[in-house]
Simulated scan of single mutants.
Amino acid sequence: MPKIAIILSSTRTGRAGANVAQWVLEQARRRGDADYELVDLAEADLPQIDEPLPPAMGRYTHPYTQQWAATVAAFDGYVIVTPEYNHSFPGALKNALDRVYAEWNNKAAGLVSYGVDGGVRAAEALRPVLGAPQIADVSATVTLNLRTDFADFGASFTPGEHQGPALTQMLDQLLTWTEALAPTHNTQAAVTA
């Protein structure tokens, strides 16, 4: 069964994303078609990139980078839960994506964004960034609006009825791409090992 990480990219205190990621995790696990696991960037606690060599070389010197590489490599695909900050995604997510390289290669990702306008600009800003480490993002996206899917500007999360089918569509696409890419990323992992 494929292993899918649900990456919670906000590290802010009181973040709305924790409830969003939990909702995604609960809905995904009900499907029974993959092993879904939450990966919280606040718990990963990655400092700004401080490796002496470029990540593409795969020679990580710091224990936290080595741990992050092992975490990323353990999954076959990803659901990235991201807020929109200033028309983009959080710096903690960019740092996590940039820190390792081959571990992301030839895997698929689905996006769940949230913000005043559903976080759509964060999702769109993220798509070209995902291409650099060879992550294939699926087209179906879940966009959660702070005005309609949350109360008290993010304090309480109650997704609209249409969000469940949107999540199902995104997860369907993600699993299709994850399964299609599995032989490729397994071959790549064997080559870089």
Rank of each mutant, 00 (worst) to 15 (best):
P2E: 09
P2N: 15
A5D: 06
A5S: 04
S10A: 10
R12A: 12
R15S: 13
R15H: 04
G17S: 05
A18D: 13
A18I: 13
A18W: 11
A18N: 09
W23A: 08
V24M: 12
L25A: 07
E26Y: 02
Q27E: 11
Q27M: 03
G32F: 12
D33K: 07
D33W: 06
A34N: 05
A34G: 02
Y36I: 06
E37M: 06
L38E: 10
L38V: 03
V39P: 00
D40F: 06
A42F: 08
D45S: 15
D45W: 07
L46A: 05
P47V: 08
Q48Y: 14
I49Q: 15
E51F: 07
G58S: 07
G58A: 02
T61S: 10
H62Q: 14
H62K: 15
P63G: 11
P63Q: 15
P63F: 11
T65I: 04
Q67C: 04
Q67F: 05
W68M: 06
W68P: 01
A69W: 07
T71L: 08
A73F: 07
F75S: 07
G77W: 01
V79M: 06
I80E: 03
T82I: 03
P83E: 08
E84C: 12
N86C: 05
H87F: 11
H87K: 14
L93W: 07
N95H: 05
N95V: 10
A96I: 03
L97I: 12
L97W: 01
D98V: 02
E103W: 06
W104M: 04
L111I: 13
V112Q: 10
V112Y: 12
Y114V: 08
Y114N: 10
G115I: 14
V116P: 01
G119N: 07
V120W: 14
R121C: 11
A123Y: 04
E124F: 15
E124K: 07
P128G: 04
P128V: 08
L130S: 00
L130F: 02
G131C: 04
A132N: 06
A132V: 15
I135S: 07
D137L: 00
D137S: 14
T141D: 09
T143S: 15
L146F: 14
R147E: 09
D149E: 08
D149P: 03
F150G: 11
A151M: 09
A151S: 11
A151R: 15
D152T: 07
G154H: 08
S156F: 14
S156V: 15
S156L: 15
T158F: 05
G160N: 09
H162C: 00
H162F: 08
L167K: 03
T168W: 03
Q169A: 13
L171R: 01
L171K: 01
Q173W: 11
T176F: 07
T176K: 05
W177K: 04
W177N: 00
T178R: 11
T178F: 04
T178C: 09
T178A: 10
E179M: 12
A180R: 11
A182E: 12
A182D: 04
P183L: 09
T184G: 00
N186R: 14
T187F: 06
A193V: 12
